[in-house]
């Protein structure tokens, strides 16, 4: 029999605290989702079940534009960030230790450390200069900014996967007449794929969710879904915002579930 005295789950009050924590975490979200189905105009007074706010959001041209913009930016930045992160992960694990590797590791993860508002202001200033110099006003600034802060989120699962991967497999491939490129294509990449997928999904979700940097960097008429919602909150709030949030939440949960299933998978 294991000694049960030190099990946290058996301390007095554990269950109560656990319930309170879960309520604090999920009650707001449940409320938000609940009122998305409200038949009334209120986000706090229940007036019966309805799907009309979902329909309203679906038909709203501004929502459609913002959603499309969000998905475009998230897809592009996830692709760019994952490619960069894959190369960075290979460079920091699959070659002999070199001077400054620790420094590079810190530099890659820097966006996790620097306060987002600082990055946002810095990008606002820098892109302002670039906009003046080039006259370019497109989505490129948002894609560039999102790619940059998504890199560490893509890098971490890829690196973890690589670090857990037996390097002798690549040596074995070389022993069996595989050139370095064939080794990468036939052995490293297939084994790394779950990590790359996980990194890409994480990057996608992080990009989809961003408000602060987007709000500072975007030009006029470049609202993403989160900044559009933020704008709506400043005016009259209707359950339409709840409906959009609910859809965004569903998408995020779906992607994170896939992420979890992919990273959990063992050989």
């Amino acid at each position: 029999m294991a000694d049960r005295r030190f099990q946290v789950a058996r301390l007095p009050g554990f269950a109560t605290i656990a319930v309170l924590v879960f309520l604090a975490l999920y009650l707001p979200i449940l409320t938000l989702v609940g009122f998305a189905f409200n038949a009334e105009n209120s986000i706090s007074v229940w007036g019966g079940f309805s799907l009309k706010w979902f329909a309203a959001a679906w038909k709203n041209q501004a929502v459609q534009d913002a959603a499309l913009r969000s998905l475009t930016i998230a897809t592009l930045s996830a692709l760019i960030a994952t490619s960069v992160a894959t190369l960075a992960a290979l460079g920091t694990t699959r070659r002999p230790a070199f001077r400054g590797r620790g420094f590079i590791y810190v530099m890659i993860n820097q966006p996790l450390m620097v306060p987002e508002i600082v990055t946002a202001v810095a990008l606002l200033i820098l892109f302002g200069i670039v906009k003046q110099a080039t006259g370019y006003q497109g989505l490129g600034y948002l894609v560039a900014a999102h790619s940059a802060f998504c890199i560490p989120f893509a890098y971490l699962p890829i690196r973890a996967r690589l670090a857990g991967m037996d390097a002798s497999l690549e040596i074995a491939a070389a022993d069996l007449y595989a050139s370095p490129i064939a080794t990468f294509r036939r052995v490293t990449l297939p084994l790394l794929a779950p990590g790359i997928m996980a990194g890409a999904m994480l990057a996608f979700v992080i990009s989809l969710d961003d408000v602060v940097i987007t709000e500072f960097v975007k030009s006029g008429g470049q609202d993403t879904l989160p900044t559009y919602m933020l704008g709506q909150m400043r005016r009259a709030i209707t359950p339409e915002v709840n409906a959009i949030s609910t859809l965004l939440l569903a998408l995020t949960v779906a992607l994170l579930t896939a992420f979890f299933l992919l990273t959990r998978q063992k050989d």
């Binding site: 037996d166 002798s168 497999l169 040596i171 022993d175 069996l176 080794t183 084994l191």
Partner: peptide, 17 residues
């Protein structure tokens, strides 16, 4: 190694999972 007509049985087997 990929250009040597020599093959290895590894201690850890190093089979492709």
């Amino acid at each position: 190694p990929n250009r040597r007509p020599v093959n290895t049985v590894f201690q850890s087997y190093a089979l492709f999972p």
